[in-house]
Write a protein that binds this DNA or RNA. Sequence first.
DNA 1: CAGTGGTCTAGACCACCAA
DNA 2: TGGTGGTCTAGACCACTGC
Lengths: 269, 269
Amino acid sequence: MNTNADNPIVSDLPDLPSGNGAGQALLTANATPAFSPLYQQIKTLILKSLQGGEWKPGDVIPSEQDLANRFKVSQGTVRKAIDELAADHLVVRRQGKGTFVATHAERHIQYRFLRLQPDAEQEMSAERHIVECRRLRASAEIARLLGLRSADSVVFVRRVLFFHGTPTILEDVWLPGTPFKGLTLEALSSDKGPMYAFFESEFGVRMVRADEKIKAVGASAEAASLLEIEQGHPLLNVERIAYTYNDVPMELRRGLYRTDSHHYKNELS
Amino acid sequence: MNTNADNPIVSDLPDLPSGNGAGQALLTANATPAFSPLYQQIKTLILKSLQGGEWKPGDVIPSEQDLANRFKVSQGTVRKAIDELAADHLVVRRQGKGTFVATHAERHIQYRFLRLQPDAEQEMSAERHIVECRRLRASAEIARLLGLRSADSVVFVRRVLFFHGTPTILEDVWLPGTPFKGLTLEALSSDKGPMYAFFESEFGVRMVRADEKIKAVGASAEAASLLEIEQGHPLLNVERIAYTYNDVPMELRRGLYRTDSHHYKNELS
DNA sequence: CAGTGGTCTAGACCACCAA
DNA sequence: TGGTGGTCTAGACCACTGC
């Protein structure tokens, strides 16, 4: 419910007088509680098309002018909506070419959520080994964090990442069973490229943002063995919840990072 | 050197024909290497006024219309410049009131760079204890990170932060001696409020952004004693370089965080 | 060359705030 | 009531890309 109940988007009025400055303003003069600017509504509409799969990761979306015509607003208004989507990294603008749905398959955007970096300037020659991948019933806590019911089916994946031959990251991943039906160890193992790109192409699930909680812990016997360190060795414990569009949680991940010659990099602003 | 060598800002031409659409565009038709849009130049000019102290933290800056008149550009162009400054948190917009220079003294922005949070929902009842504050000569590494010469004077501060009576953070801070001349343990101890707010009001130094590198380490004997834990206890080692305007490093800080009942929170997007 | 995003302007009007 | 930021429009022209 907002003030703009009968603006050109929501209504089907053929045309409003153009050139009238703040078009929607005329319709919102009477005091109303929730006021949402036009460009926010446009943003929401574009977002819905992204969720709905009208345009897939990597695709071009219609030009600003096309969208302006579709929504019966000026190009500037569409522009502001897309500006925000671009700021959220949901979309990437390329001058002269168009606006594209963001994807983890992009060379430059790859591993956008992995903040572990080598202390020195070396390359990130990474190798991956899937330890296991199996279906199981969600514990109460896993279910809660993923927005499922207890005992719902989830996929569990454990893998180890090697940098320059050194096992450096041990990751446990939990995924909701339904959207990831058919995920197998073989498919995961044979895939090259970022896991999130794999999720996009194989399951149509795009991870948009994530929250991480970091602690320092001592290595358990199991972690020590997989990471080839002694038990109790200090490790970074990184707990991540990753979200798709609309803040729907779609992945729970716990990483244990060796920080002997790497560090977690964060930029504060 | 850029294309806009004779635009209204740089030149003193009294007036350009107004209403000519892309005003500067006329002046940049011939192919030139570095093209910088007008609003970027405006942003730089405003930035210079911020650095120069023309407006201090907490102050209102002139209205968009005033700045537009001063720089002889349209309000929209000034607007876009300020939009970027606001996105960088250098400035805060308040509808109906004006645009203000950001400050760490703001209730809501306080502790903006401290990402440690309680696992539970409790309050952050914090107590601080300054352990020491003395002048010393910069080691080669400290000097390099702060952009000083070896053996230049630096101020060293060590403090412990308590949450609910539990010593949780041990911080070592290095500050360049010249801008922080006159900093004493007494002044630091008697001050309430965030350290960065203190730096603003007492030394005119405003921290704008920071980089952090995080590792997991075992507590040294010294750290263990100050944080009341056993030696070897896993701690988060957070190394921070904080910058003022123009990416000038102004502080080096190493924090050791206990993460028994707290975690470092990070939002990825 | 046409099409796309990017910059700039000018003007109208709204929402919010303080006096 | 006047001032400030915020929204919206319309139109001109630029920079970049690809046919």
